[in-house]
Simulated assay, not measured.
Amino acid sequence: MIVAEYARDPWASGIVDGSVIDTRYTLVDDLIIYKSRIFLVPGSKVKQSILRALHDSPTVGHPGYFKTYRQVWEWFTWKGLKSDVLQYVRECPVCQQNKQEHTFPAGLLQPLPIPDQKWECISMDFITGFPKAQGYDCIYLSPTDGWTDGDSEQVGGRLFEELRGWSAEGMGEMDSFVVPRAGDLLQESKDIVDALKDNMPYKQSTLKKSGSEKLKPRYYEPFRIIKRVGELAYELELPADSRVHNVFHVLRLKKALGQHVVPSTVLPPLDDEGKLILVPESILDSREK
């Protein structure tokens, strides 16, 4: 195919038949050689086959740009080689799904504004999951000024720890205990939050994504963006039977690159806890101890 492409290119065909003289190029077995490397004409269809062989094959294992470029450069040369290799590696679907980007996390924390006066912002929370006592199975929690959902969750967790030892029959005796104790917990946690407010810029700049299973893909199929939600989230077009909430923070997203990106219509199989369902293709051998 390379020789056939030479015949369709005026300059390359001139090198082959001797009508074009350029001492930098030699002819070996009908192939044009430049500095010990095979020369390809612009627009050669062989480029994609070479890039697939030296980047996608299991023996090389999807190396990065520099290693892929060195592999190609060792045997072949053409105009725009570096840019072609860079584009191919950036648009590789496997690399986009599995490789980590060495960049700063996208976006900062977006904390709620701190109220200037009392009762400027009022929120409430219900702590549920208790055994019924006097016909009720939840506790109403009214956070004070400057509280966030995380503060309420923390107080709720501590209440659960203190109330977990009570039996369902004893729940009626807790009416006089829960309210004052909850107030103490609220004030104690509020003092902690006040002390941490000055550290919020540091928390914003140092937030990092937590680790995950080593062989699990970091990203899944490309999905179409429906709309932007707030400052740092996007709503995606997921399949109708999806059990995953379709709004994601930008930390969980990455732009899909490529000239022919096709949005996916399916999700990987998940169990009730949202974990991947992994089924082996075949059992090669087994052993009992």
Rank of each mutant, 00 (worst) to 15 (best):
V3D: 02
Y6A: 04
D29R: 03
D30R: 11
D30H: 12
L31D: 09
L31E: 12
I32S: 07
I33F: 11
R37N: 05
I38G: 01
I38F: 02
F39E: 01
V41N: 02
S44I: 12
K45T: 14
S49Y: 13
L51V: 13
L54P: 06
H55K: 05
S57W: 10
G61W: 05
G61D: 13
Y65E: 10
Y65S: 00
F66M: 06
K67R: 15
Y88C: 04
V89W: 04
E91I: 02
P93W: 03
P93C: 06
Q100N: 07
H102F: 00
T103C: 08
Q110I: 10
L112D: 14
K118G: 08
E120Y: 09
E120V: 08
E120M: 11
I122R: 13
S123Q: 05
F126V: 08
K132V: 14
Q134R: 13
G135L: 09
Y136L: 13
Y140L: 15
G146H: 09
E153K: 11
E161P: 00
E162V: 15
R164A: 14
G165E: 12
G165D: 14
W166I: 11
S167I: 01
M171T: 02
D175A: 13
P180G: 07
R181P: 01
S189Y: 02
S189H: 12
S189M: 05
K197F: 02
K197L: 09
K197M: 07
M200R: 11
Y202N: 04
S212T: 11
S212P: 01
P222T: 05
P222S: 07
I226T: 04
I226V: 15
K227M: 03
G230H: 03
D241P: 04
R243C: 14
V244W: 07
V244C: 10
N246D: 15
V247L: 02
H249Q: 04
V250Q: 07
V250P: 00
L251Y: 04
L257P: 03
G258W: 09
Q259G: 15
S264I: 02
L267E: 09
P269A: 05
E273L: 03
G274S: 12
K275H: 15
